[in-house]
Design a protein around this nucleic acid. Structure first.
Lengths: 155, 155
DNA sequence: TGCAAAATCACCCGAAAGTATGACCGCTGA
DNA sequence: TCAGCGGTCATACTTTCGGGTGATTTTGCA
């Protein structure tokens, strides 16, 4: 069954060949074709079988080449490399120490913990935070952290 | 000039046809071909021109389609659309209210402001935050916000 | 080298945040 | 039906935060 389907073109071609040969033979026997008309005869046969060949080639040649589109998903991870928004730092006139305090604040440290980490007194950190809030125009450390992230001051 | 190049195949085919017809005519004249051998003669011609047809078809038929592999880079932008990390919510056993409070906390609201926004008392918010901190194992709202962002609980 | 800005520290006070505990209500699943 | 949970609220207390003010030292730069 599969054989028939797969070789349908070839079988059809063979049958067509047979039919044409039979036809030609019959014409010949019937004396319809004179000896003189051999040229035309050959021409017709040639054209016929050329057409057949073309058809065969087109049919048999598989559509084959498929366009393969490979969709490659590439996950970009922008947060991996944090770049400080220098412009905002300048605009807000934030000092280095204030920015540092802001970063630790964002990490969830208390003023005391920041003080310990930076080896300064609690009061110093308080001063820094107070200045920071004033410059950033916020009232709470949570607001400062939120705004800081939005402005690209902290990762 | 261009005409010649573009129709080279067709011209070649025509010429081949002419040559073969001349050849056949010559054979006929030379009495090499007897009347009896017409079948074989036709068969040969048929095969010949079928081959020609196939060759023609293959040659003429387009500079076959090339395999095109397109690597499509799809940018995934995670920050654009925030999806809540349900797994973490379940793991930490956070209630809806607690998550809500966390979100407002992350926006920089004070407990009193959150209370006003949710139309509940300050004490209620305090209870929620206390429970939240216990479940998240943190001690401060800033820590909760930081961890919440890392775990995908808040945008 | 001098000066402004930055960094440091201190004290006080009120506000906000966080801790601990107890209580009430409504819903739900065993 | 009853235990458990989520949500609500309250009181009392401690800790931390933030505002205000003032002062000294350090540092970067013109």
């Amino acid at each position: 069954m599969n054989f028939l389907t797969r070789n349908k073109q070839i079988i059809l071609y063979g049958l067509a060949l047979a039919v044409i040969i039979i036809l030609v033979r019959w014409l010949e026997i019937s004396y319809i074709l004179a000896d003189d008309s051999v040229d035309i005869y050959i021409g017709v046969i040639a054209l016929l079988f050329t057409g057949l060949g073309v058809w065969l080639a087109i049919k048999l040649r598989k559509p084959k080449v498929e366009t393969v589109i490979v969709e490659k998903e590439i996950l970009l991870t922008p947060p991996v490399v944090f770049v400080l928004n220098e412009n905002e730092v300048k605009r807000l006139n934030l000092s280095r120490r204030e920015l540092e305090v802001l970063q630790w604040m964002a990490a969830g440290l208390s003023n005391q913990e920041i003080a310990d980490k930076l080896f300064v007194s609690l009061n110093t950190i308080k001063t820094h935070t107070a200045q920071l809030f004033e410059k950033m125009e916020v009232k709470r450390r949570t607001q400062a952290v939120d705004l800081g992230k939005k402005l690209g001051l902290i990762p």
